[in-house]
Design a protein around this nucleic acid. Structure first.
Length: 458
RNA sequence: GUGGGUGUAGUUCAGUUGGUUAGAAUGCUAGAUUGUGAUUCUGGAGGUCGUGGGUUCGAGCCCCAUCACUCACCCCA
């Protein structure tokens, strides 16, 4: 047999995985829709010009490019080909690429349709993206992103609703132990100002973002290497290491930021979000003010979020933040500030698998299998199966005349919870045999009784 | 891009200083049981030891190359 395989970093999702993935995706979709977000889908491929230059030089290299159709080398200048420099001829032989994320295609969509869109525009988008990265644990070349954004408003209501949505999504998924870490870009800028690193913000942010991953000492080393002196490091960690409740942290920073306008602005935004949360009637349970949270993406300008599930080996499962101008990358004149966040479906899946909290029904195919012992029972069973389907019960009848043993094995393997066994006895009396596979328990019941009981398992 | 690790049955893995016919668990399959799965018992099938070369009387084991997978770093979800 020929050896078949999958491209590196890609995966099949079999029926049992799909059942769980759909449970996850549908739960999240429901929450998005409940908060007024509308679905958007964009093509897997975009013009390469739409994608290049948006993710930095590294990002450009991670783009999957699509060869032009036909004789794509025909019109390339001979001199260019001679150089054997792939980068040089890329633009001549590939004008399309696979999307790298959902944000840039969304920005493109907003720019293209700005006259039709009613702002504030709330959309969600759940689609695969592709990166020519080297795969490793929890990182794939094809993976799903699950984004929700609001564009066209500065209101902090959006930030508050994001918190509510995260809480609601996790509640419906059955994840109880998690924390929503929040920080504000302006608070970070304030921090940079105080320690005299206003000119060197990004180096500072990248370093302190790693704090919980590599520890205080390593971060100090990294910052020293980048020219930070001992005095500013002491000052910095004095603030980063402050422990206390959210309110205490805010008070503490208010005194520290007395001279920093940016810092004050960040704190007031953050306090506003907390106060709106209260007005919604929600608590700040699971919400944690984390001064060291920076997130890599430099285009965030306001609140930033990151969600971690406790006691699992996966990284953050959700994140996002506010940005000033989504469409700036396309030189759009319209100001399109907004706030967005996304769920990492693959990581959520891994986390829920690790916690073993996927509901059992999520993996079951049918609720009932109709098993039969002879030709006559099979014919009788067809009616039973269809009547159950009429009552919206997922049901299948075994297609072949096989030994009852084989039919039960089939139900067991497919994790079908109930089997109706039909033989000459059942056909004659109309009393059907219902077997619950998990317990092995078996009852003689009428069709109506079974149909009623199955309503509970739909 | 940089640096580790691992390739043996469908799957997860044992395999002694290099020495007869390469094992286990699980899965698959047949039966014990002609109306009952999962559990129990009995039998059976299943391997070019990733690939190519080298050392040796002899290589799953040692050496070289190559490919695949995998983990970490950079970056990211």
């Amino acid at each position: 047999m020929e050896k078949v395989s999958l491209p590196k970093g890609t995966r099949d999702f079999g029926p049992t995985q799909m059942a769980k993935r759909l449970f996850l995706i549908n739960s999240i979709k429901k929450v998005f829709q409940k908060y007024g977000f509308q679905p958007l889908e964009t093509p897997a491929m975009e013009n390469l010009s739409t994608l290049t230059g948006k993710y930095g030089e590294e990002g450009d290299q991670l783009l999957f490019k699509i060869l032009n159709s036909g004789d794509f080398l025909k019109d390339v200048e001979a001199a260019k080909l001679e150089t054997r420099n792939s980068k040089l001829i890329t633009s001549d032989i590939a004008e399309k690429g696979l999307r790298y994320d959902l944000t840039v295609p969304f920005a493109r969509y907003v720019v293209m349709n700005r006259h039709e869109i009613t702002f504030p525009f709330k959309r969600y988008q759940i689609q695969p993206v592709w990166r020519a990265d080297r795969p490793q644990r929890g990182r794939y070349r094809e993976f799903y992103q699950c984004d929700a954004d609001v564009v066209g408003t500065d209101s902090l209501l959006c930030e508050t609703e994001i918190i509510l949505m995260i809480k609601e999504a996790f509640a419906s998924l059955g994840i109880a132990d998690f924390s929503i870490k929040i920080n504000h870009r302006a608070i970070l800028s304030g921090l940079a100002e105080i320690v005299g690193a206003a000119q060197n913000e990004s180096a500072l942010f990248v370093a302190i973002d790693k704090l919980d991953k590599i520890g205080e000492e390593k971060v100090k080393e990294e910052l020293k290497a980048k020219g930070f002196d001992d005095a500013s490091l002491t000052l910095l960690f004095d603030i980063l290491n402050f422990k206390g409740t959210t309110a205490e942290k805010v008070d503490f920073l208010t005194t520290k930021f007395s001279s920093s306008e940016k810092g004050k602005k960040g704190l007031s935004d953050f306090s506003e979000v907390l106060s709106l949360l209260k007005k919604f009637g929600a608590t700040d349970e699971h919400v944690e003010f984390d001064i060291s949270l920076a997130r890599g993406l430099s285009y965030y300008t306001g609140c930033i979020f990151e969600v971690k599930i406790s006691n699992v080996g996966v990284g953050s499962v959700s994140g996002g933040g506010r940005y000033d101008n989504l469409t700036a990358v396309f030189d759009s004149k319209e100001k399109s500030s907004g706030v967005g966040f996304s769920f990492g479906i693959d990581r959520l899946y891994d986390a829920m698998e690790e916690l073993k909290i996927f509901p059992k029904e999520a993996s079951a195919a049918s609720t009932v299998l109709v098993a039969h012992l002879d030709e006559e029972s099979f014919t009788f069973g067809l009616k039973i199966a269809q009547s159950l389907r009429d009552r919206n019960v997922a049901c299948e009848i075994y297609p072949d005349q096989s030994k009852i043993k084989k039919q039960l094995e089939y139900a067991d393997k497919k994790k079908i919870p109930f089997v109706i066994v039909i033989g000459s006895e059942e056909v004659k009396t109309g009393q059907l045999t219902l077997k619950k596979l998990e317990s092995g328990q078996q009852l003689k019941l009428t069709f109506q009784e079974i149909a009623d009981a199955m309503q509970l398992y739909k």
